[in-house]
Amino acid sequence: MQHHHSIIQEIFKGVSLSNDELDAIAPLFEKETYKKGAIIFKANDTVNDQYYIYEGCLRTYHIDDAGKEHTVQFGIKDWWITDFIGYFSNCKAIMTLEVIEDAIVYKISNKNKDYLYTNFPQIQNFIVKKLEGAYAAFQKRIILSLSQSAKARYLIFLDTHSDLEKKLKNYHIASYLGITTESLSRIRKELYNH
Score class of each variant (00 low, 15 high):
175 S>G: 03
57 C>L: 04
106 Y>N: 01
100 I>D: 04
13 K>D: 13
62 H>L: 11
104 I>L: 12
58 L>F: 07
90 N>Q: 15
10 E>P: 02
15 V>W: 04
114 D>F: 11
161 H>I: 07
145 S>I: 05
146 L>D: 11
181 T>G: 05
30 E>W: 01
121 P>G: 02
29 F>G: 00
22 L>P: 01
166 K>Y: 10
144 L>F: 10
23 D>Y: 00
173 I>M: 04
62 H>D: 08
56 G>L: 06
183 S>A: 15
171 Y>C: 05
133 G>Q: 14
112 N>P: 03
25 I>C: 05
145 S>A: 12
45 D>A: 08
169 K>S: 15
2 Q>Y: 10
39 I>K: 14
169 K>F: 15
97 L>E: 05
133 G>E: 10
182 E>K: 11
173 I>D: 01
54 Y>V: 06
143 I>E: 15
23 D>E: 14
184 L>K: 06
154 Y>S: 04
118 T>G: 03
26 A>M: 00
159 D>T: 12
125 N>D: 04
155 L>R: 05
12 F>K: 00
169 K>M: 14
23 D>K: 08
119 N>T: 04
144 L>I: 05
172 H>V: 08
11 I>E: 04
121 P>W: 06
116 L>V: 01
147 S>P: 00
193 N>K: 14
33 T>W: 06
44 N>L: 13
184 L>A: 07
14 G>L: 11
170 N>W: 04
186 R>T: 03
106 Y>F: 14
171 Y>Q: 13
18 S>M: 00
50 Q>G: 08
52 Y>K: 01
153 R>T: 00
24 A>E: 10
5 H>C: 08
146 L>V: 07
70 H>N: 13
179 I>N: 03
22 L>F: 02
165 E>R: 00
142 I>A: 14
113 K>W: 12
164 L>R: 04
155 L>T: 07
182 E>C: 00
119 N>Y: 11
28 L>H: 01
164 L>V: 03
83 D>K: 06
175 S>P: 02
126 F>W: 11
166 K>F: 11
51 Y>W: 08
61 Y>T: 06
89 S>E: 13
117 Y>F: 15
32 E>Q: 13
170 N>A: 15
178 G>V: 12
128 V>M: 12
148 Q>F: 12
64 D>W: 09
21 E>M: 01
5 H>Q: 14
142 I>M: 12
32 E>V: 07
62 H>F: 13
180 T>P: 06
48 N>E: 15
32 E>W: 06
124 Q>T: 00
189 K>L: 05
21 E>I: 06
46 T>Y: 12
185 S>P: 04
157 F>V: 06
33 T>I: 14
3 H>K: 13
16 S>I: 10
122 Q>G: 04
33 T>V: 15
173 I>E: 07
161 H>N: 13
38 A>Q: 09
47 V>G: 02
